[in-house]
Design a protein around this nucleic acid. Structure first.
Lengths: 138, 138
DNA sequence: CTTGAAGCTCTAGTGACTAGAGGTTGTAGA
DNA sequence: TCTACAACCTCTAGTCACTAGAGCTTCAAG
């Protein structure tokens, strides 16, 4: 049996975050001591590892809830899990495209100015004021 | 003189968002009508355009406040603006790296499973449960 | 002068935590 | 067995950048 602090150390998830996960129904403790402190078993440890990993990959709490639900019904089709992962992948790819465009634009803006001179002739400020300067879309 | 709705149409920024910008001190209206409705001049229009553009590029409200502050003191050095833009660029590049790693990982996970079979043998779920499967860091 | 779209303020909700107050429990050492 | 204190508990409120809704008032076209 682990205390919430031990669980935290082993998974790298902060104590208040673990309590938050309980609050939203993601991770329930195995039980409580007489003094009302949470105790977890290895099941809880694994579950939190799963949550942590999925969060690191950017899955939302909602998506993780669905995935855990799926885990607990081993007879249900795997398709749903694949769909969730695919959706996440699409999402990440969209963000990537967007960020790449931003990077290009920011390089242009930030490098256009040497930092000398006063702000009334600053290229950074001028670029932000006038979208015309931009090459791409955003 | 523009109403808040006209300003919204011209810039593509939603009406409640414009009011929110006022609340946080980013954009003050030129004045009010007798009936207490906001009225803006071309200055406000340009200012909102600036804000919109900077937000699209991912600058925080705080950073934009600093940039606008700089605009209003044309005698101050341009260096500060360049610094803010450089910081934003660094930030975007970090996010890019992270997202690229996630993409790789998600491709591996999502493509490893054909969606057939049941969830007790699902590669997506197994991968999420076990970080060992991962090739890179995240 | 009427109608209704557009405006107003205020409060609360979003997601995924994080911070702090103020009180209680578990456990190691004396 | 006692004591000290780290770790635990609950609850509320704050973060960021909006968004939604209630309930009311004003503006402008016909």
């Amino acid at each position: 049996m682990f205390s919430i602090g031990q669980l935290s150390k082993q998974t790298g998830v902060k104590v208040p975050t673990i309590r938050y996960y309980e609050q939203v129904g993601l991770l329930v403790s195995a039980g409580r001591t007489e003094g009302n402190q949470r105790r977890y078993d290895t099941d809880g440890l694994e579950r939190l590892g799963f949550i942590r990993h999925a969060r690191d990959l950017g899955f939302s709490i909602e998506a993780i809830t669905a995935l855990i639900d799926l885990q607990q019904h081993p007879d249900r089709s795997c398709q749903e899990a694949t769909q969730i992962a695919q959706h996440q992948l699409t999402d990440v790819r969209e963000k990537l495209l967007r960020l790449k465009a931003l990077e290009t634009e920011l390089v242009r803006i930030a490098d256009g100015c040497d930092g000398e001179g006063n702000s009334d002739e600053c290229y950074v400020l001028a670029s932000l004021a006038d979208h015309q300067h931009c090459r791409g879309e955003h």
